[in-house]
Design a protein around this nucleic acid. Sequence first.
DNA 1: GCTACAATCTGTAGTCGCCACAGATGCAAG
DNA 2: CTTGCATCTGTGGCGACTACAGATTGTAGC
Lengths: 142, 142
Amino acid sequence: MARPDTNLRATCLAIGVLSERTGVNIETTRYYERIGLLPKPDRTAGRHRSYAPEHVATLAFIRRARELGFPLETIRDLIRLNAEGACCETARDVTAAHRRDIRRKIADLRKLDRALSVLIDECHPGKQPSCPIMNALAARQP
Amino acid sequence: MARPDTNLRATCLAIGVLSERTGVNIETTRYYERIGLLPKPDRTAGRHRSYAPEHVATLAFIRRARELGFPLETIRDLIRLNAEGACCETARDVTAAHRRDIRRKIADLRKLDRALSVLIDECHPGKQPSCPIMNALAARQP
DNA sequence: GCTACAATCTGTAGTCGCCACAGATGCAAG
DNA sequence: CTTGCATCTGTGGCGACTACAGATTGTAGC
């Protein structure tokens, strides 16, 4: 009748197992706890952390959000929203704002790409008296 | 005959003037010196930094390279290359490598953009029982 | 020369999101 | 009981700055 995980302890995980299961580095997990992103787990008699299933869920949540590039402070908000439920609109807004950030970064990087490409295209090693790339960097007056 | 800047001191700049002229923050300029990117300038009797024209040129070089997104360690190499002259091929290689980095970052960000867009498109606030964004983040098993 | 006030000085700590280490414990198997 | 791995705490590093605090120095007006 009583299955093994009727015992609460049995479902709890050491930090190493948690790490493997979620793909989050041990040190990173402790870091998340330190900054208050992951709740403090119970401890064993010897002060080792003992993670309950909800910790696994939260850490996996954090990992997936990180994979989507959300900053930790935003993830903090998302976790709160998720706990509150009924958050679809806000979640959408937060995600859309994040996508705007990403797109801004892409635009910035594309500008760099174009500028670098111009320099590279101008540069024909061995066929010019001076290097266009170095000239651009060392330009007297822009 | 003797023009004002026959006097060497006259062409030297305080850090504030250097900062304005190159557009590099004062603190940043000192930081570049600390990490050995910008050579240490002479000092006045009162230990204030006194920058010669070559410092202006180097700092302007650094600034332009930073605007192109080169990391400081690469800029260190570029400065050395520039001082050595006859560097066109290497400069081109360094720039091309940097462009590859930029393009990799763009590709990564575009992946994020697409993933976020899928979530945003799936999310229609008020028309669904649960939020697709939150479901994706809190997914039981990926 | 004196007095304000601005500029500069040094040194340190904070940012973001981790990762790595040292040295001390804890724990489980043989 | 010992061996050897896991975990503990605390600290410092990364990149590229920025922001102070508190002490000097430089300079302009009087």
